[in-house]
Design a protein around this nucleic acid. Structure first.
Lengths: 334, 334
DNA sequence: GTGAAAGCGCTAACAA
DNA sequence: TTGTTAGCGCTTTCAC
């Protein structure tokens, strides 16, 4: 029985040529006789031959792999934005595949592993790195940014930061939300959620800027980001507070949905008595009753930009950070 | 200025030992003098030395990488179960990381790429493969199963199939749903969604078995799986049909949510006039008003099983498929 | 246009 | 316990 054709050398013997020629033929290099190439390709097909990628990549010093890390800081474990991040991840996978790269995924818990980013980068397995979400690791990311070019981060942009980031203009998003609430006659706005994550802080800041300018009061109703924990906290807010707000800007859609539910069970009319705006425009947003007014981030575009910038940086170019404008999606809660 | 310590040989020179010894020391092999080891480790730390993983893995013929493929069949592009699959993916990432493996992700569109599975497996980059969802690719997966042991699939189990699968007992899930509806006095049940994907067909079959036995009528209200497209289809069903059902079993939570919304806008009382049950127990399920009764799949457990079985198969063991029992989560829509 | 040969950086016999 | 050596399978000069 015929031994399996496993290496390029096996194939070379069959074809009666040298391994080098097989390599060239299979790599689609120009300087190979058409006849020779055809013969080799036919043989390869026939014997179901596949290049050993480990060897090839090792030899070329190219892994062909882009690493994607999701740091799970503060209470982000199985957290609210997961849906958003995971959707982004899906688009990244599509985009990278299209460009011929593989995607290596790692979720890390920074508290447990100080060294998470260096370890990933230094693993030698990835040619470039995309970090999804700064979590509470802004400083650590800044630390490596100077010494490691092929990295792009999804997250919030800070004046003067060193790492290349693409993300939504969270501040603008906050502005849009506040403007909408105020245009709907809200006099007193509550920001629902945490302002710990830098992105959310920016959303709040944007809203506050508008509120302050318009002489509308704004305050934070703090919650955890996990919707289940948040549900109780929201209930408490409604129970204890003087309910002195007529507009709510939720840090994310999931929080907004939880809040909507609480208000409905308390028979608070939405948008009649209280207006509500979310953030993200997840699929659920259009499925609530009434459908949720929210601020949309274009996730697919975000993924495309991340990959674009990364590939350019891997090419030695230097790149500016990119801030994508979010869009108000007016539905019925505000 | 000191040249960077890049290779094990550089480090060996500094330490005044041979590369072999450095390799052993860094690999934590037992037969190395404690002093020597310490010295080498100190030097490695000092010079921030990191093993070239490509070389190491290539040499050992172990990539340390598990491939995860998500085939996007029928109208599954940006589809309904995405949320479910992506959550599963997150857990898989955690589980694999814990066991020291990296995760390589690929989404494929089988229609465009007949050869998707062989290509992935044959890439030589992965030691094992997890396929998330059979999509409409059951046969193709069966084809490779015999020739390729280290593969486990999330999906539905068929009598006598050859590939190792772990998944929920969709049939049982369907039964639970139907039993619940019937116990709530439903006389006529509608199954909302597609029965094309094999998992959903099983959900329907389970429900039908119970309905038939109890003399309750059951029919399919076909929709696409994408909630946005489904929304219109659901509206049409309500507009055109004789609304001769008093219980709805939706193939997924997302469909259930869309349906709930439609019923509310038509002032159909839920659960008063029509009962409703979903499937998956996604985070949204508890956030609707009223909260959704549904059938829960334990995603984390699923991920753990997938990884367990895969590692055992990579070890040469042969393994049975695993069917996990779903659980009825009784909330307020049925 | 093709062959021969020299490694990529590491690990694992085998010797010492 | 350590050093020496022979590759892993491929790509890429450099000759011819």
């Amino acid at each position: 029985m015929p031994k399996r054709v496993r290496t390029i050398t096996d194939l070379a013997k069959l074809a009666g040529v040298s391994p080098g020629t097989v390599s060239r033929a299979l790599a689609g290099k120009s300087l190979v006789n058409a006849k020779t190439r055809e013969k080799i390709e036919a043989l390869a097909r026939e014997h179901d031959f596949r290049l050993n990628q480990m060897a090839s990549r090792f030899r070329r010093q190219k892994t062909g792999v882009i690493g994607v890390v999701i740091p799970l800081g503060h209470d982000r474990r199985q957290q609210i934005s997961d849906t958003f991040f995971m959707t982004l991840l899906g688009y990244l996978a599509d985009e990278l595949t299209e460009r011929g790269y593989d995607l290596m995924l790692r979720r890390v818990i920074p508290d447990k592993d100080e060294d998470w980013l260096d370890r990933f980068i230094g693993s030698g397995m990835v040619e470039g790195t995309i970090v999804i979400g700064q979590s509470d690791q802004f400083d650590r990311i800044e630390d490596v940014a100077d010494g490691y070019r092929p990295m792009v981060v999804w997250g919030n942009h800070q004046e003067g930061q060193r790492h290349c980031v693409v993300g939504s203009d969270n501040r603008l998003g906050g502005k849009l939300a506040a403007e909408r609430l105020i245009a709907s006659d809200c006099q007193s706005i509550a920001f629902l959620g945490s302002t710990d994550p830098i992105e959310f802080a920016a959303r709040f800041a944007g809203a506050k800027a508008v509120a302050d300018k318009m002489g509308v009061s704004i305050s934070v109703l703090p919650t955890h980001l996990n919707p289940d924990r948040a549900a109780d906290e929201i209930a408490e807010h409604f129970a204890s507070s003087h309910s002195d707000f007529d507009g709510i800007f939720a840090a994310t859609d999931l929080l907004a949905v939880a809040c909507l539910k609480e208000m409905q069970s308390r028979k608070i009319a939405v948008p009649g008595k209280v207006k509500l705006i979310g953030f993200d425009d997840l699929p659920i947003a259009s499925q609530t009753q009434p459908p949720l007014t929210t601020v949309r981030q274009d996730i697919a575009a975000g993924a495309r930009c991340l990959v674009d910038l990364l590939l350019r940086r891997m090419n030695g170019e230097s790149t500016e950070s990119l801030v994508l404008p979010p869009k108000l999606i007016a539905r019925q809660t505000a």
